[in-house]
């Protein structure tokens, strides 16, 4: 639908023709309409479009921001980058809002977040030397300072374990164990057969448990010394 993406300087008549083709709650191109004159000229329609668009977008943010942040983080986005990647995910969603069917917002955001996370992972190596986390982790506000430290350590440990999984296994593991999606949902979102989801989950669990078992065995050995 190329018309969605023409950045706006509509010729006479053109904009209206396009607007009529849009669902009433859409108007994502509004995010690109930054020209004051244009905004003034189409004020009424613009306000209506903006209100609907803003409402839907805000609803997406309120409803799914934790979900998006968690998927991004567990899919391998460094803590320091989560804020930016959350924004990126929602910006993409905003620009594609016309394409997002009502009711399929969550799976659209999930697919977008997985793509964004994959992109973020690819850039990690390039930035490794400057990527020391400087954004604070998000913690349970009621945790004690000691627990905060421990939560941070647990998170690092989890990152290390997940980082060692192949990204295919990791994605299935994260969606099943953390997002509690069922296998059919995962298969649909990832576009892979359900049997593949099941086998990836099996392998991912085996890897996860093996690593944790090794950690526990070793820490027990150290304690026993």
């Amino acid at each position: 639908m190329p018309r969605l993406f023409l950045v706006d300087s509509p010729g006479p008549g053109q904009a209206h023709a396009e607007d009529e083709n849009r669902p009433p709650d859409a108007g994502i191109a509004a995010i690109e309409r930054t020209d004051p004159q244009e905004e003034a000229s189409g004020q009424v329609g613009q306000i209506m479009g903006n209100a609907a668009r803003d409402g839907r977008l805000r609803g997406l943010v309120d409803g799914y921001i934790d979900f998006v942040a968690r998927v991004l983080r567990n899919a391998g986005t460094p803590q320091a980058d989560v804020d930016d990647e959350v924004q990126r995910t929602f910006i993409i969603a905003a620009r594609r809002l016309d394409d997002v069917r009502v009711g399929s917002e969550k799976s659209f955001l999930l697919q977008t977040a997985l793509n964004v996370a994959a992109h973020a992972r690819r850039t990690i190596a390039r930035r490794r030397e400057v990527a020391a986390d400087h954004a604070p982790d998000t913690f349970d506000a009621r945790a004690t300072p000691e627990q905060l430290t421990d939560q941070k350590r647990v998170r690092h440990l989890l990152d290390r374990i997940l980082d060692q999984m192949g990204s295919d296994l990791r994605t299935v593991f994260v969606l099943y164990e953390f997002e509690e999606m069922n296998m059919a949902e995962i298969a649909e979102v990832l576009g892979i057969p359900a049997g593949t989801v099941a086998s990836r989950l099996r392998r991912a669990r085996a890897e996860f448990r093996a690593r944790v078992g090794m950690i526990e065995g070793l820490s027990k050995a150290e304690r026993d010394q």
């Binding site: 977008l57 921001i65 968690r70 989560v82 647990v154 998170r155």
Partner: peptide, 24 residues
């Protein structure tokens, strides 16, 4: 470890920044 993965949350700042980036 599993709990750490499941309980991750965004924070207010992230939400504010996201709304701002969206022009809301």
């Amino acid at each position: 470890l599993l709990h750490a993965g499941r309980s991750y949350r965004s924070n207010r700042e992230t939400r504010a920044k996201t709304l701002a980036a969206l022009g809301l």
